[in-house]
Amino acid sequence: MKAAVIVFPGTYREQDMMRALKKGGANEVSAVWHAETELPGGTDLVVLPGGFSYGDYLRSGAIAARAPVMASVADHAKKGGLALGVCNGFQMLCEAGLLPGTLMRNAGLTFICKEVHLRVEATNSAFTNGYRHHQVVRFPVAHHDGNYFADPATLDRLEGEDRVAFRYCAPDGTVDPKSPTANPNGSQRAIAGILSENRNILGLMPHPENLVEELLGGTDGLPLFESLGLAA
């Protein structure tokens, strides 16, 4: 597995991401500056990490989604290459049109920085096949614009095609989109992460890369990186 982590001005989660990828078994992990026009040869996985690219100017992820490197990222993904976007990276994937919908301001208007519970909905992907269906995991979130929105037809399609990867839930796994505790940012149908049509792109708001070691509070994020490590 050869992974490329893209770094934009304002990105700051790339070190955590690179460490998690290595821990998961990736044998080559490089950081790629946004002004590059090509990915390193033989890249299996592209990662758009979290942060505040361009200070969230215009809309979160909007400027980064039009950066020079993004044409290569889109090309890689359209050829079936794996792509992962976490937090700001998820916002970029939506802004770039690689995933449907968008991330709006949190329903409660506040920045949310805490651990949340997620229910694994789709295990049929290179990202999520290390989890059990409906397994409840605990990942941290740190975002202001994480309120997933898409029109009802798109939401129905995502659900019909088993493309909702993670939903926010209560600690016991109950999903309640109307509850500000079980669905902290007000996302439509409590959606926390989605897959592309070909299941090779995953975008999610919570940070699996920050729970990959017992020393730092748990390893619920590790299966995602381990299954990616085995993917190529």
């Binding site: 215009l58 809309r59 909007a62 039009r66 939506c94 802004e95 449907p100 919908g101 968008t102 709006m104 929105f149 898409a150 029109d151």
Partner: peptide, 9 residues
């Protein structure tokens, strides 16, 4: 279409 608006919303 390309930048100033997000036509999803």
């Amino acid at each position: 279409e390309k930048l100033l608006a997000n036509t999803v919303i």
